[in-house]
Simulated assay, not measured.
Amino acid sequence: MHRTSRRLLGGLLALGVTVGAGACGSDSAGTEPAASGGWSFTDDLGTTVQLDEAPTRIAGLNDLAASLWNYGIEPVATFGQTSAEDDVAFEGRDLSDVAIVGSAYGEIDLEALAAADPDLIVTTIYPDDSSGEIPADKAGYGFNDMTQQEQVAEIAPIVTIAYRGSAADVIERVVDLAGALGVDTEGGDVAEARADFEAASEKLTEAAAGGVSVLPVFATEADGWWMAKAADDPQLKLYQDLGVNFVDPGGEDYFWHSVGWEEVPNHPSDVLLYSLRFSMSPEEIAAQPTAALLPAVQAGQLHPWKYIGPDYVAQAAYMAELAGYLTEAQQVTG
Rank of each mutant, 00 (worst) to 15 (best):
L272A: 05
M319Y: 09
D44M: 05
E111H: 01
L110P: 03
R164E: 14
P127T: 11
S130F: 02
A29I: 11
G334H: 06
E133D: 14
V247H: 00
L95N: 12
T56S: 14
D311V: 00
E172G: 04
A35H: 02
G334E: 15
D270R: 06
A116W: 03
M319W: 07
R3G: 03
S40H: 03
L9N: 01
M280S: 15
A54V: 08
Y254T: 02
G334C: 03
D232S: 03
L64T: 04
S269M: 03
L45R: 13
A156L: 01
P118D: 06
V19M: 01
L236A: 09
T56V: 05
G260H: 09
A191Q: 08
R3T: 10
E150W: 04
E262C: 12
I285H: 01
G140I: 06
R3Q: 13
G224T: 10
E202G: 07
G60E: 07
D27Q: 13
T290R: 13
S131I: 09
V101C: 05
T147D: 10
I308P: 02
P135L: 12
D52R: 06
A104F: 06
Q330N: 13
S36K: 06
K203M: 01
A168Q: 11
T333I: 11
A228E: 04
S201M: 03
L204S: 08
D94S: 11
P216L: 00
V175Q: 07
I308N: 06
D87R: 00
L294D: 01
A162Y: 03
G80A: 08
D119I: 02
D253C: 00
G16W: 04
S36V: 00
F79S: 04
E283S: 13
R164G: 03
S83L: 04
A219S: 12
Q149N: 08
V297H: 06
E133S: 07
T31G: 08
Y312Q: 09
A104S: 15
V98I: 15
S36N: 15
V212A: 13
M227A: 02
A99F: 08
E133T: 12
P282F: 05
